[in-house]
Amino acid sequence: MNRGTERAIRAHAVRDYPRECCGLVIKVGRMTKYIPCTNIASNDADFRLAKEDYVAAADMGEILAVVHSHPDRPPLPSPADLDACEEGGVPWHIVHVSKDDAGLVAAGEIHTFAPSGYEAPLLGLPFVHGVHDCYALIRRWYKQERGIVLPDFERRDGWWDDGVQNLYLDNYAKAGFEVVPDGVADLQVGDVILMQIRSKHHPNHAGVYIDGGWQWMIHHEYGQLSCKVVYGGHWLQVTRAVLRYRSEKT
């Protein structure tokens, strides 16, 4: 990365502080260029690059790297950063930015990392919508335990309250699942349990049934760490459907 690109990245990080900035490094002909993008995340502590910005940058040239800032914390990748880097298949740059005692905002170290085969653990991950959420946990379980790569789906934070998008019911067939007619009476390891939690309209949460003996379910609830719980009680009450991957049907 040349000095001009580094200067542009640092300037963007300072400009967007205390919110995380995000952008893309592209190659146009023989030139490398930094393209500032819009962070559409719902809070200042995360970033989500607008799809339209990514498409526009890709139309301009070859995507070389993804960039974002870490305001007031070290520029080391979180598990969500590592996971998203693997998904994207290009290196990432994280720039540190902070405010000193005099109130001056400055950007410093840029940490670079690349896809390396990282796989996030199933349990103990902080919630990051769209990266480490309930559907992302289902995708990780199927990849790690069954070698099945499920499709990802664009989803905005709070989709379950708009009365329009119905992430799970609109897409489960596209992902290779079908409804289990007998529901919880016929649970098998790998079944996806759809639940409705604090949602007025649709099932908005899901977990994977992983053990028939103790009735374990893994799930990643909003704002919580991904975890394993006994499936029953409250979870049974909020269950709306059970889905099974077609190749797992017996």
Rank of each mutant, 00 (worst) to 15 (best):
P91W: 12
Q144T: 14
E6S: 12
L49A: 05
E87W: 01
R19S: 01
G207C: 10
C22D: 12
L236T: 08
A173L: 09
I210A: 08
G124W: 01
P181D: 04
G232L: 02
I26F: 15
D59E: 15
D53H: 01
W214H: 11
R246S: 06
M217T: 08
Y231G: 01
G163D: 01
E154C: 04
I94M: 12
G130P: 01
M60K: 15
I110T: 00
I26H: 14
S226A: 10
V55H: 11
G190K: 05
G89I: 12
Q165L: 11
N204V: 00
M195R: 01
Y209T: 03
C134S: 13
R246W: 13
H220A: 09
H111C: 03
H68N: 04
Y209R: 07
T250G: 14
Y118A: 08
R48N: 04
K228T: 00
E6N: 06
R30Y: 10
H201L: 07
D157S: 06
Y118S: 12
P181F: 07
I197V: 14
D133A: 06
H201D: 03
G232R: 05
R15S: 09
V97H: 08
R155K: 15
V90D: 02
R7C: 03
C227V: 10
H234T: 03
E154Q: 10
A57P: 03
D211T: 03
P121L: 08
K27R: 15
V184A: 01
W214F: 13
T112N: 09
V67N: 02
A175N: 10
P91K: 08
P18S: 00
G176F: 11
V184M: 07
D133E: 05
E86D: 06
A107M: 01
D16E: 15
V25S: 02
Y172K: 07
P71K: 11
V238I: 15
P79N: 10
R244Y: 05
D170K: 13
I63N: 13
Y209D: 11
Q196K: 15
H70A: 12
Q237E: 15
I40R: 05
S226I: 02
V238C: 13
P74G: 01
H219I: 03
S116F: 14
D211H: 14
T32D: 09
I110M: 12
G163K: 13
G213C: 12
V128M: 06
Y54N: 11
T250E: 14
G117K: 04
S98E: 05
H219T: 06
L225T: 05
